[in-house]
Structures are given as structure tokens and as C-alpha cells.
Design a protein around this nucleic acid. Sequence first.
DNA 1: AATTTAAATGAATATTTGTTCATTTAAAAG
DNA 2: CTTTTAAATGAACAAATATTCATTTAAATT
Lengths: 191, 191
Amino acid sequence: MPKAKDDKKIEAIFGATLKLVLKDGFSGLRMSDVAKEARIATGTLYIYFRDKHELINELYLSLKKKSIDSYVDPADMNLPIKKAFDTVWKKYFLNTLQNPEETAFIEQYYRSPFLKVKVKEEAYQLLTPIYQLLERGKKEQLIKHVDNDLLIAQISGPIAEIVRMHQAGGLRVNDSIMKDALQLAWDSVKK
Amino acid sequence: MPKAKDDKKIEAIFGATLKLVLKDGFSGLRMSDVAKEARIATGTLYIYFRDKHELINELYLSLKKKSIDSYVDPADMNLPIKKAFDTVWKKYFLNTLQNPEETAFIEQYYRSPFLKVKVKEEAYQLLTPIYQLLERGKKEQLIKHVDNDLLIAQISGPIAEIVRMHQAGGLRVNDSIMKDALQLAWDSVKK
DNA sequence: AATTTAAATGAATATTTGTTCATTTAAAAG
DNA sequence: CTTTTAAATGAACAAATATTCATTTAAATT
């Protein structure tokens, strides 16, 4: 047998791609730079990924799955509504804050010529438990009877914006800011 | 005298650039395609803009100014707080909804290697009246005493997200959705 | 130890794409 | 009507960058 493909190499390639996207944006992503950053030869990239499109789509899927895993825990969904809301909100906030590269990558992916609708929809399936939680909140008269996507937008939108400001250096996030942000979010969706 | 530079041509170039960015994302923007879309020769582009960087930065500035002009009207700032909030919110919402290309362009600009910090800061100066309005709301005990940027994030974040969903086809915006969204936003920031 | 197989290499190649420039066109002035 | 001037053209050029491939390397099997 020959030497086997290395899983750690895939991680290195993903990591390198992420780092470069954060630094220079999506438009500046070069395969040769990815290879150099991952400490492999350019040609090796093409052993692991057919081409740039496949690399980018695979990375998107990997990031999206990891991200959703970090804040969608089926166990949380049975907590009392407010408790569940706080828990998921905090996990989502911290994940977004601590993985800004992933968020930046995902945002840019949506606007890029690399996006494959099927790949995107595959990832969104994983959000079902969140929608179910909102439905339960409405039944228990704790959450406003408005469109679920509107509620989602109201919760995720500000978090994205806050993290963007934090990254740009305009707003320094700390416990106090986080507490305020959670309060604003809950006041918004609560009945 | 020779034939004069054509202002309409600049508009055509800006329009073409916007359209292509909306279609293929920032990474896919090609100068030759911009020229074709604007129905001019490639070389003509370089009479109006030194290079791709200048084209993109000039377009950003033009879009940002037009956008801010559409929702920051000094006259609105003297209305009673809730009235001013509703007015500015609606203008901002409609502007974002009706000019998704501009929003898409601006978002991608921030993550691109084309961004010039000075150009970005120049545009942000124009938001001062909004911050002043929030300060007055706090003094009058109508708006929560939390960080202004947090309030801004809470208002602009969901709008960006809603329009993104609308564009992607997931959420259809209508008067009822808009009314709900405004209510959610106000409940969030009101004292 | 010899052999086999696939990973790994990175220089070479192919392609894409930003920019230039010799030439043409059209508007205004004399 | 001729001359002048700058816009407009688009093929040619230059640079950047994705991909390939002949060759080497290392792991596993015999």
C-alpha cells in the first residue's frame, strides 16, 4: 500500500483557506497561497479537492455544520422557553464572536459565484430544531405570533452586526454589552 | 473642442458594475464584462476610472452617499422620538429593500481587498444625526440607556437579514411583515 | 529487500483577466 | 471646410493565477 491520504492535511487546507479569506477577502483567494499557507505543494491541493469550486463548497459545508452543532443542541430544546432562548442565544453569540473567520467566509460565500444552492439548502436543514422551539414559544404565549423568519432575522441580524462592529474595532464586546444585547433581543421577540 | 465626457456614461458604468456584482459576486467582477454591460469599449473604462480599484471605491462612495441621503433627513430629527424612529426606520427599510444591489455591493466591499479605510470613514461621518437622535431618545427616557452602536446594530441588523431572506426567496416582504418588523424593532430599543 | 501503489512535489503550462496603445471618430473652433 | 482635440475603440499585451504532469517519495505488502 502507498501512504494514505492525511485527514490532518484537509484540516490544514481548510484552515489556510479560512485564514486567507479573513485577511484578503474572497476575491483575493489564490490556490498557490492556500498551498503555501497549508505547507503543502500546489499540486497536492488537487489530490484532495478537484478544483477551487470544490474546495470552497466543501469548506462551507464543514464550517456550517460545525457552527450549527455548536449552538443547536437537541437537549436545550426541552428547557422552558426563556431558559432555552437564553441558552441558544448565548451559544450562538459566542460562536459568532469567537469564529469571525467562519462568519466572514459564509457571508461571502452567499454572494459568490461559487455558491451551490443544493449545498446551501443541505446546511439549512439542520436549523429545524430552532424553528420548532419558536413554534412552542408561540403556543405557550411567550413569543409574538409573527413569521418565524422575522423572529430569526431579529435574533441573528443584530448578532452579526455587533460582531462586525467588534471586528472593525468600533464596539468592544464584554459581558455587559452581551447582557444588554440579550435583553434587547428578548424584548424584541417576547409577547 | 473634442466631444465631451459623458455623465450618463459614468452612470452606465456604475450600473453595470452593480448589476454584475449582484449576479456573480465581487470575486467574479471583470472589467471587460463591465464594459460590455455598459455598452462601451474596455479601453473607455480607463478614461473614466484609473483602474479597477478606483472604479470600485468611487462606486462605493456614490452608493453610500445616495443611500444615507435617502434615510437621513435633518428635518426628521426634530420630530417626537417615536415618530422620528418610525420615519427613519421605514425609509431605511424601504431603501434597503429597493436597492439590494447597493447593499450587496457595500457588504462585499467591506470584506474586499479594495476597501480604503479613509473612504469608508468619510461615508460614516454622514450618520451623525442618527446618533444624535438616539441620544435625545435616552434623555427623554424613551430609549434604553445602552451603547449607541448596540442600538444601531439592533435596528439595522434585522433589516439587512430580512432583505437577504427576501432576496433569497425565503421570506416575502409585504406591508404586514413590515409592520411586524417595525414593532419588533421598537419593542427592542424602547425603555 | 524488492516491489507496488498512491501521495506529494513544484516547475511548466494554460487560461483568465487587468491594462495599454495605435488608430478612429466626433464635436467644436477658426 | 479644415483643423484641432479629446473621447472612443478593441485588438494586443502583460500579469496574475488555476491547473496539470513528469518525477520523486514513503508506506505497506510480498
